[in-house]
Design a protein around this nucleic acid. Structure first.
Length: 424
RNA sequence: GUGGGUGUAGCUCAACAGGUUAGAGCACUGGGUUGUGGCCCCAGAGGCUGUGGGUUCGAGUCCCAUCACUCACCCCA
């Protein structure tokens, strides 16, 4: 019986992995221009961190976390998202006291124990960004702008930004009360899940896709209409700044999010082609989280982008050839020939060339075929007659030109010069 | 956690209604050129048909179970 990977967790290899690297690199470059610094936190944390941040009554905490005791019985959790860990790290190292350190990003794996399907995996990767310390709506807008800009720069088209305001600790509780009052009138008509949500987390009925529930919800009071003056102005300002940079968005009054820590601004970036998992990214403001986790009371905004989902949307990109072609492919026709150029090959690599070696002493024809499969631009052949003359054959695979070069202490230099000359 | 679909060579897929030795393309190896790639030609290698039971004279094919993958519900990136 062969051992296979864990369900819902995949190996990432060529040619996809080259695209991953490109995208990650693009993210780093862009985020740096926006003043973000990278932060890398452990993938395991104490279980309570997530229960306290994401919310006891969310699906993530209730049934989707990888939680297990370590050897001494401490409950650990594989992080289901990045925000909680980053906030924890900021509080722990007092990073909020450093004026130039207000923006953080991280790229890495997250874990949720769910039934895998298209765009949803048990180990998945997020590009995550957090801006801390600012309450001003300009920050919300900039975060969304950055998320959209990044996705566009990867080549994505036809994505939609959906935004909403969830209110704050002042206006949400009274709103919640009104909502529950309204919903109670239809208590018997809800689906099983919504009936439960009614008591546990009433805002989430807005997420329900059951037609009956949707209908009831369409008549329900909306958060947006119940915002306090402060939140209303905040939301308007967010919209203003988005307009200012011509960042299109749709005000989705039914948008709520699955993590409890969000307040005011919440957003999602949706795309077709992902099946049921239509969000490539999402985020929002979480002003209360720092205090909730025992830190100073500082506001923050953040978002995450799903790598796997982005990859699905960018699938066509994978077909492009991204693997470099070798500058030189060495072919030895016998052991003695190989002994002669092994050192040379390593030195050329040190000097920056991509060099491949034929590791098997097979027929010239078969080694040539192999060199060709790699797309090598040059081949160096050494066999018996070359050994006698102390030379090597250099063949340009594109032009088929061949020349002899002396095999001595100077070969390395001669080769480098020759190749760089050709590239002019 | 619930439901549907699919499991045959490394990959993509065939195999009439249950019937001889499970095939093809691509990929792989060797040869066609004593030591020169791509195209072409020839040959070769590669399979416990996911696994375990059952029905049958006979199972890749039918039945049951199980596992894996996949899609959807739920939830979210």
């Amino acid at each position: 019986m062969v051992v296979s990977a864990i369900k819902g967790m995949s190996d990432i290899y060529s040619p996809e992995v080259e695209v991953w690297r490109e995208i990650e690199e693009k993210a780093r470059q862009l985020f740096l221009r926006f003043g973000f610094r990278e932060i890398r936190t452990p993938v395991v944390e104490k279980a309570e961190l997530f229960a306290r941040s994401i919310g006891e009554d969310t699906d993530i905490v209730q049934k989707e976390m990888y939680t297990f005791p370590d050897r001494k019985g401490a409950l650990l959790t594989l992080r289901p998202e990045a925000t909680a860990s980053i906030v924890r790290a900021i509080i722990q190292h007092r990073l909020h006291n450093i004026p130039t350190m207000g923006k953080f990003f991280t790229i890495g794996p997250m874990f949720r124990y769910e039934r895998p399907q298209k765009g949803r995996y048990r180990q998945f990767h997020q590009i995550d960004a957090e801006v801390i310390g600012f309450e001003d709506p300009v920050v919300d807008a900039e975060a969304m702008y950055l998320a959209m800009l990044f996705l566009e720069e990867t080549g994505l088209r036809n994505i939609e930004l959906r935004i909403n305001s969830l209110g704050c600790s002042l206006c949400r509780p009274p709103y919640k009360k009104r909502l529950v009052e309204y919903l109670k009138n239809y208590e018997t008509s809800f689906c099983k899940d919504c009936a439960r949500r009614l008591n546990s987390n009433p805002l989430r009925v807005f997420d329900c896709k059951v037609p009956g529930c949707r209908e009831i919800v369409s008549g329900a009071p909306k958060v947006t209409d119940s915002l306090c003056e402060h939140c209303r102005q905040h939301f308007e300002k967010v919209c203003f700044y988005l307009d200012e940079v011509k960042c299109g968005y749709k005000h989705d009054r039914n948008l709520v999010r699955g993590l409890d820590y969000y307040n005011r601004t919440a957003f999602e970036i949706v795309a077709g082609g992902l099946g049921a998992q239509n969000a490539v990214g999402g985020g929002g403001r979480y002003d209360g989280l720092f205090a909730e986790l025992g830190g100073p009371d500082i506001p923050a905004v953040g978002f995450a982008i799903g790598m796997e989902r982005l990859m699905i949307l960018l699938k066509a990109e994978v077909k492009k050839e991204r693997v470099k072609r070798p500058d030189i492919y060495f072919i030895a026709l016998n052991e003695e020939a190989r002994e002669k150029f092994f050192g040379l090959a390593q030195n050329l690599r040190k000097r920056g060339l991509y060099v491949e070696l034929g590791y098997e002493l097979r027929s010239l024809k078969s080694q040539m075929r192999r060199a060709n499969k790699f797309g090598s631009s040059h081949v160096i052949i050494v066999g018996e007659s070359e050994l006698e003359k102390k030379t090597a054959i250099l063949r340009n695979m594109d032009t088929k030109e061949q020349s002899e070069l002396p095999l001595d202490n100077n070969t390395e230099q001669v080769l480098i010069e020759k190749l760089s000359k050709e590239n002019e």
